[in-house]
Nucleic acid binder design. Sequence first.
DNA 1: AACAAACACGTAATGTCATAACATATCGAT
DNA 2: ATCGATATGTTATGACATTACGTGTTTGTT
Lengths: 131, 131
Amino acid sequence: MTLSLPDLTKNQSLVFETLSQAEAPLSAYTILDQLRSEGFRAPLQVYRALDKLLEHGLIHRLESLNAFVACRHSHKHQGTTVFVICGRCGDVDELTDQVVNDQLMQRAVERDFTVESAMVELRGCCGSCSQ
Amino acid sequence: MTLSLPDLTKNQSLVFETLSQAEAPLSAYTILDQLRSEGFRAPLQVYRALDKLLEHGLIHRLESLNAFVACRHSHKHQGTTVFVICGRCGDVDELTDQVVNDQLMQRAVERDFTVESAMVELRGCCGSCSQ
DNA sequence: AACAAACACGTAATGTCATAACATATCGAT
DNA sequence: ATCGATATGTTATGACATTACGTGTTTGTT
């Protein structure tokens, strides 16, 4: 399950593994607590690793939760990622949608706006939890 | 310019006026500082007012900035609001887009997900700033 | 008018998320 | 072997938000 990837440093690997094994988004401080046994002592150790993992596209930050998740899809298919977040179980699904992406970019162009990053997050209740 | 609205309390009015006159999103603590001369002493005075204003739909919270703006449009036209945020001048534009809204809701329904709230924020550079 | 419930307010303390600043160590290419 | 770039360790601090508790004010009912 552990793919070998753009060589990660020890700290980066530890943080990535922690996120990969989590079933819900984790805050940086939760990650820190889980890695204390591995020698982590300070938030910055986590944040630095998170920054690199974000750069590599291996994880995502959920703005509405101030938390992080491991990326699930190989995001070769560019474009805006829509995060679908269940508030009950914490499960996060990712999807890319051409229509949403194109329409957002179109609306931006219309008003002469250059998009540098886009955030789309749906919060609610997933199918499993609403039964 | 100051419409009379669902009766706001003194604190709520002060916070709303502050946001209305601002040219960019303000953090709760920035609002607090601006209202110290009016007797504000603690963050909670601001947050409580913000909560009520959010309930009334008079302001919005920008998740990607941890900041707040006064609402510009009369949001009678329901649906997901797209925030278009310039990182240079801080200007925030709001728009509602039926296509984006419908598509997001469609994708949610497909996977049996009940949307409770949706956040769409575009960050980048506005036309004025890129000239 | 008297009362109770609901709401708003004041204040202090604390919790949560994130970065600045500075020192040291490790890796890679010449 | 050395130099530059990158990664790391540690402390302190900044920025955002809530809990807990007590008081005051409004409002609707009897």
